[in-house]
Write a protein that binds this DNA or RNA. Sequence first.
DNA 1: TTTCACTTTAGAATCATTATAAACTATTAC
DNA 2: GTAATAGTTTATAATGATTCTAAAGTGAAA
Lengths: 135, 135
Amino acid sequence: MKKTDIFKKLRSSGLRPTKQRVEIAKFLFDREKTFHFTVESLNKLLEKKTTSKFALATIYNTVHSFKNAGHLSEVEVKGNKTYFDTNVSNHHHFYDSETSQLIDIDAKEVVIQKIPKAPNGKKIKNVEVFINLKN
Amino acid sequence: MKKTDIFKKLRSSGLRPTKQRVEIAKFLFDREKTFHFTVESLNKLLEKKTTSKFALATIYNTVHSFKNAGHLSEVEVKGNKTYFDTNVSNHHHFYDSETSQLIDIDAKEVVIQKIPKAPNGKKIKNVEVFINLKN
DNA sequence: TTTCACTTTAGAATCATTATAAACTATTAC
DNA sequence: GTAATAGTTTATAATGATTCTAAAGTGAAA
Ligand SMILES: [Mn+2]
Ligand SMILES: [Mn+2]
Ligand SMILES: [Zn+2]
Ligand SMILES: [Zn+2]
């Protein structure tokens, strides 16, 4: 991902490209594969990868701005922490509770043959498939 | 549900049938349909339905005992509160984020035609389908 | 009726997250 | 440039859900 793309992500999230935000954005978006993380895990990885220190509030604020701009999505996982996902397309997940690891499943990999119709007056917004793993 | 069944649920959870526990168990299990709840919502409903007061710790402890015994399951819902479910069979959910309401979907109502195989060395424990609703 | 294990309870502690307000930094106005 | 201004980071406090703790309550068993 080019530097200009990082800046584009920041600008489109209403964020000016400060040192901290650029480092967070690079870390999140300059990669091949999907990245699933909690604010805590992101903080630890940032500490390792960079020389800077980040206030937790800065990470929370930046991540939320990206999420509100649609550059990050949220994944529901058992437990009390919030998981974020750099894959914002419609997709599904494997979840390995042993390692607390999420693995993406492309929407095309899951075909649903039958699904009930939505209750009175409601429509289906989207369908999420969550596959729990064991050893 | 008969009183003896309530007692059976309590005993099989390692709980002696005290006044509070019996009231919680009756409220949870003596009903036709599935009940989805948070500890907070359960507490409010118990206050309305009964004359007793319940310490939050008592509700937390009792609910967790039921969950550990397999009489309650946990449902992942966006947000910070933990949702419990009196339906412990394999099933799916509609979720209406407007009203924070969960609606059960029987496992038979969903047929999945294609699913990816589990990653190296892992097996599929179960598949959960979550259908988000909109108006 | 005394003992003793188990319960309930109020309140404290914890943990993730959010809010606050002061110190910093960059941008704009003169 | 310097001053004013707007936006940012940060440490720390506040919050809210959940868990822990320790004291008081309850009831079965000796
Ligand atoms: Mn969760
Ligand atoms: Mn949740
Ligand atoms: Zn994902
Ligand atoms: Zn359910």
